[in-house]
Nucleic acid binder design. Structure first.
Lengths: 256, 256
DNA sequence: CGCGCATTTGAGGACTGTCAACTTCCGTGG
DNA sequence: CCACGGAAGTTGACAGTCCTCAAATGCGCG
């Protein structure tokens, strides 16, 4: 494991302010591993023995029922995943699959739990991380239950724009069929939703999406700080504490 | 606050194995309060100053967007809520409203955070609680994205049956319009879903629902341990660690 | 160049939401 | 005790949303 990788791991909110001793305990026995695209890292129902830290590549978390599969989240570096199962030493509720070639640090769950026991500050960092994940899912649930598919897509595009700080041109980070499932629709309907957004100045060319009129798009999307992590706060309420996770982990893509 | 109430609070997973000193710190400044039905305890976007512990009555957590309101969870005693916002000292993402007359213990967020700092075991208990909440939401999201409304209702009824340990007759704990929103549908469609379940032996009389053929209902519902907390595990995997929260907190209704 | 896969487009149908009217239930007040 | 009013729940008609299947198109890689 390169020194630069260690720095990147330390940069995670989970390990940011952790004492060196605790960091050593927490990452003891961790080993870096490379996986080709399309590898199943974890199957839902399996016991979870490791905390995963994605250092390079993309990982998809998905769930299955009755022969259907849906994407629950897509992770990009640097992020951890299945922390909740590690904390509870429980079986995974989601499967994990690499979407690209990935570089992943695998830390034994025992080490994490031991470090929590020894250092209340680290245990608090875990709590904060989990609280952020929880709130990300609350946002996601509101998004799903309150908006139709075109509205979800519109907000997704605005979130991408905010995360990439890109003027009016955003690049999709995932294949469209993966994105469709993430947004809770079929690939066919994602196509049609893109078509429906033409009226609002959106044009698509492969992975490149041009937002002709952000104002018009926002008028449809009605982004809300209580659903969309990027949306502007109304007053001057400082809600900076949020290291929250949203769909596809857009926040982590922000320059820090 | 009655001694019996203190015992009930100590019975919560969050406080179960906590040292007496820590318990004193964590609950310092907590005060018991009574609220009539229909009281807004918390509005989404508000800063969260207290951890709420519901001791009696029912509380609904809901979200709003674009003039629509949806129910995200319904809590029954004894349970805590908005722990995540307390841990992050952040603004609430959900509003909370009493559905009945309620008795609620309000604990200053500072006290919770202080207790976490002082006692890593308590911080771990908070982590476990949050991890359980998170996994509850993962289950909920899978439920929403993978099943249609009738399937969700069928599984809800089976979950009720498992929680209440009631043979073939279950009582709905909430008004149907609230239940409808919780399950992600309109009251009209809840009615129609109940009607559709007649073919599977379900008959409704007010709040009393009779499950004529659990086998037939399960055949439709296909309950899954990775979505429905009550569903039977396939092998002999002990997933006992789960103090997980599902829709309407059904698990907490189980006799302990 | 050609194959395979992703994406798009079209048609049809299933599912879900909206609106309106009706029924039932329940608490209030006569 | 009964009548009444209001809210909750149900039902029907209709429209919008979304899914499925099928076919066509486009794109990238061998």
């Amino acid at each position: 494991m390169r020194a630069s990788d260690i720095e990147r791991v330390k940069g995670l909110p989970l390990f940011a302010d952790v004492a060196p001793d605790t960091f050593r305990v927490a990452t003891a026995g961790g080993h870096l591993q490379r996986f080709p695209a399309g590898t199943m890292l974890l199957l839902e129902g399996d016991p979870v023995d490791f905390l995963y830290v994605l250092l390079d590549g993309q990982v998809e978390l998905h769930g299955t029922w009755n022969d259907h599969e849906i994407v629950l989240a897509i992770l990009r570096p640097v992020s951890t995943f299945i922390l909740a199962a590690v904390v509870l030493d429980a079986a995974a509720l989601m499967s994990a699959r690499t979407l690209e070639r990935c570089e992943i640090l695998m830390i034994p769950g025992d080490a994490i739990r031991t470090a929590m026991r020894l250092d209340s500050h680290f245990a608090m960092a875990v709590s904060r991380d989990l609280a952020g994940c929880y709130r990300g899912l609350v946002r996601n649930t509101k998004n799903l239950k309150l908006r139709n598919s075109t509205e979800r897509l519109a907000n997704y595009l605005l979130a991408l724009r905010a995360a990439d700080n890109s003027g009016g041109v955003v690049r999709l980070h995932h294949e469209k069929r993966v994105l469709a499932s993430l947004l809770g629709m079929t690939p066919e309907n994602l196509s049609r939703s893109f078509a429906a957004l033409q009226k609002y100045g959106v044009s698509v060319n492969g992975a490149v999406v041009t937002l002709g009129s952000v104002a018009a798009l926002e008028n449809l999307a009605k982004p809300d700080p209580l659903i969309d992590n990027h949306a502007p706060r109304g007053g001057d309420i400082v809600a900076d504490a949020d290291a929250e996770v949203w769909l596809s982990d857009l926040t982590r893509a922000k320059p820090r």
